[in-house]
């Protein structure tokens, strides 16, 4: 009796072992794939850095390759958190950097905004006035007419996605300051909540001058008419009603400035009514 009971157990254990082995193998495979991808990627970057030198990525040669690419990157990452030499300054900057820069770009992701300012040799960082920033950006467009072009011809529909949505066959989008731009086009621009690196300048310009994004920076769904007229926070961070409701149910802080929504909106109950009615009929 005991034998017959123990037999299945014995026979099942090799099965388990096999299963484990298989799992191990697949994990190893995955790691291999990742390693291969990493190496491939590294060699790509290296080749780019060392002007198409086709030698394999040897660690000892590393200073020649990637270093060329690194300094601007480093600046950008530094500006991301507003990091400075002194630690206390750094702490403060980390907290303050987001709200203020996001108010400049009106809810645009602060990191990309600061990055953008970094690129412009700090001349626009000195300006705290919105209009001045807008003017400076426009002036910048005239100074470097070749700058914005790549971003327009690139597949990234940076400057005016709403217009793209209206006229899909148009191969290129209109710049907001383009003289040939039809006046019938809405003066909206996509809110860049992503890293944008190149091509942000256009988006940044448009956001500064008009400040209504076309998609919610939280869920990336398009903002409808109700959403675009919905301004839940004084910092100017816009989002869709659905995301706003979800945030109210959670920690209730504005994603743009991290201040609690209720405190800023004490005097305007309609906003809350709106968000509630939104929750009734889920879109």
């Amino acid at each position: 009796m005991a034998n017959s009971a123990s037999l299945p157990a014995l026979s099942s254990s090799p099965n388990d072992l096999r299963k484990k082995k298989r799992a191990n193998r697949s994990a190893k495979l995955k790691q291999c794939k990742l390693d291969a991808r990493r190496d491939q990627w590294l060699s790509q970057v290296k080749n780019k850095g060392s002007n198409g030198e086709s030698s394999p990525p040897i660690p000892s040669t590393r200073p020649t390759g990637p270093r060329k690419l690194d300094p601007p990157r480093d600046n950008a990452t530094e500006s991301l958190l507003g990091l400075q030499d002194s630690e206390t300054e750094r702490r403060i900057a980390r907290k303050d950097d987001r709200p203020c820069s996001s108010s400049i770009s009106s809810g645009c992701f602060s990191c990309s905004a600061t990055e953008d300012e970094e690129e412009e040799d700090g001349d626009s960082t000195a300006l705290d006035d919105w209009e001045a920033v807008a003017d400076a950006l426009i002036a910048d467009h005239h100074h470097h007419p070749e700058e914005p072009k790549p971003s327009i011809t690139a597949p990234v529909p940076t400057p005016a996605p709403p217009s793209v949505a209206l006229k899909p066959p148009e191969p290129r989008a209109w710049r907001p300051d383009d003289a040939f731009r039809p006046s019938s086009l809405p003066n909206l621009s996509k809110q860049r909540s992503f890293d944008v690196g190149r091509g942000f300048r256009n988006g940044g310009h448009a956001v500064v001058s008009v400040s209504v994004p076309s998609s919610c920076p939280i869920c990336y769904e398009d903002l409808d008419v109700t959403d675009t007229s919905f301004l839940p926070c004084s910092c100017g961070f816009r989002l869709c009603l659905f995301c706003h409701k979800r945030i109210l149910e959670a920690d209730g802080r504005c994603p743009g400035c991290r201040k609690p929504y209720g405190m800023i909106l004490d005097g305007s109950p309609p906003v809350f009514l709106l968000s509630r009615s939104c929750s009734m009929n889920i879109r």
Binding site: C111, S193, P217, I247
Partner: peptide
Amino acid sequence: AWSPAWTLQS
């Protein structure tokens, strides 16, 4: 200090 406006990239 997380904000939903952050992305994996950021």
